[in-house]
C-alpha cells in the first residue's frame, strides 16, 4: 500500500473530515471534556496492549530499545534547539519550550501509524510502545534545563544592567511535573498492569482494548482534525520560519528514527516506522502543560500551533507513508 492508498484508512480519513468540517465552518463540535476523556482511554488501551505484549518480550532487546529511547529523547530536542537558535531566529525561551515538544511523542500520531500498519497487515514489534513511555520525560527535562540556562544568562545580563530581580528556579515542582505527568503515569501504569495481569483476566477486557480501539481513535482524530484546522489562522502569528521548522524537524527526527529502528535495533519495517514516528512527532498532550508551568515566558501559541497545526497533520498525511517507504528500503523488506 503506497501513495494515496495509504491515506485511505478510516483514522486518517476522519482526521481529514475534521479539517474539512472546520474549513467550511460546520457546527460539528465535541462536548466539553470529551477529547480529554478519549485521550485517557487511548493511553490506557495502548499501555495495556503494550504491557501484555512486553510480558512475552526479550529483556535484552527491551533494554536496548529503552536505551535508544533515552538517546532520542535527549538528542532530538538538542538538535531542534540548535536549529531554532540559528542566527538568533527564535529567542531562547521559546526555542527551549518548542524543542521539548519535538523530543517527546504524539500518542495520536503513533496510534495512527499503528492503524496504518494494521491496515497494511504489516507486523511490528511492540518495543516502540515502551520507548514512547520513556520518551515522554527526557525532552521535558531538556526543555526545562535549556530554559533555566537561558534564564540564568538573561539574569546575568540584567544584573550587569543594574536590575537584579531574576526569579529563582523551582526545580522540585518542575521535575515533579515532568516525572508524574498524567499521561506518563497512565501509560506506565497501564503497561505494568498489562504485563502482570493474568492472560485469562486480560481476555475479559479484550473488547475494551482491542475491538473498539480503532473506532475510538477515529473519533479522536476527527476532533484533532478540527483542532488542527482551528490553528491555521495562527500561522501568521507564528511566522514562516517556525512553520518551516514544523515540517523540517519531523523529517530530521523521522530519519534519525528510521536509522535507529532499522540499523541499530534491527526491527522490521513496521517496528522501524513506529521508531521513526517516535522521532518525528511532537507532543501536544503531555508537554504543553509542562512547558506552560516550567517555561512560562514562552508563548503557548507557538508550540501548540506547531505541534498540533503543522507537525501533526504533516506526519499523518505525509510522514507516515514516507517513513514507511524509508523503513521498507532500509530494512530491505
Amino acid at each position: 500500500m503506497t501513495g494515496i492508498d495509504s491515506l485511505l484508512i478510516p483514522a486518517v480519513l476522519f482526521f481529514v473530515l475534521g479539517v474539512f468540517a472546520k474549513l467550511i465552518h460546520s457546527d460539528l463540535k465535541f462536548p466539553d471534556g470529551m477529547t480529554k476523556g478519549i485521550s485517557l482511554y487511548l493511553l490506557m488501551a495502548i499501555g495495556l496492549k503494550g504491557g501484555a505484549e512486553l510480558a512475552k518480550a526479550d529483556l535484552l532487546v527491551a533494554l536496548n530499545a529503552i536505551f535508544w529511547a533515552f538517546v532520542m529523547g535527549f538528542l532530538i530536542p538538542l538538535l531542534g534547539y540548535v536549529i531554532l537558535r540559528f542566527r538568533d531566529r527564535i529567542d531562547a525561551m521559546n526555542a527551549a519550550a518548542i524543542t521539548a515538544h519535538y523530543g517527546s511523542v504524539s500518542a495520536g500520531t503513533f496510534l495512527t501509524a499503528i492503524a496504518f500498519l494494521d491496515a497494511t497487515k504489516e507486523a511490528y514489534e511492540t518495543y516502540p510502545i515502551i520507548m514512547m513511555v520513556i520518551m515522554e520525560t527526557p525532552a521535558i527535562v531538556v526543555g526545562l534545563v535549556l530554559a533555566a540556562m537561558a534564564r540564568k544568562k538573561l539574569a546575568a545580563a540584567q544584573a550587569g544592567a543594574g536590575t537584579d530581580d531574576a526569579p529563582s528556579i523551582e526545580w522540585k515542582p518542575l521535575l515533579h511535573e515532568a516525572l508524574t505527568n498524567g499521561s506518563v503515569i497512565l501509560l506506565l501504569g497501564a503497561m505494568i498492569i498489562g504485563a502482570i495481569a493474568s492472560p485469562q483476566s486480560m481476555e475479559k477486557i479484550h473488547p475494551f482494548i482491542y475491538d473498539i480501539f480503532m473506532g475510538v481513535l477515529c473519533l479522536f482524530l476527527l476532533d484533532m482534525g478540527m483542532e488542527a484546522a482551528k490553528r491555521l489562522k495562527e500561522f501568521k502569528r507564528v511566522g514562516a520560519y517556525l512553520v518551516a521548522f514544523g515540517i523540517i524537524m519531523p523529517l530530521l527526527g523521522g530519519t534519525i528514527g528510521v536509522i535507529i529502528g532499522a540499523i541499530i535495533l534491527d526491527f522490521s519495517a513496521g517496528g522501524t516506522l513506529l521508531v521513526a514516528i517516535l522521532g518525528a512527532s511532537a507532543s501536544y498532550i503531555a508537554v504543553p502543560p509542562a512547558m506552560r508551568y516550567g517555561v512560562p515566558e514562552a508563548n503557548p501559541s507557538y508550540y501548540l500551533t506547531l505541534a498540533l497545526g503543522v507537525t501533526f497533520p504533516f506526519n499523518v498525511v505525509v510522514g507516515i507513508p514516507l517513513f514507511y517507504q524509508m523503513a521498507v528500503w532500509m530494512t530491505g523488506s
Binding site: F30, T35, Y284, P288, P289
Partner: peptide, 19 residues
C-alpha cells in the same frame, strides 16, 4: 470555572490540558 478564549497565548479551546 473553565473558560475558553483567545489572546496573546493563542487559542485556548479547552480541549487539551495545555490549552
Amino acid at each position: 470555572f473553565d473558560v475558553r478564549g483567545s489572546g496573546s497565548s493563542g487559542l485556548q479551546s479547552g480541549h487539551l490540558e495545555g490549552e
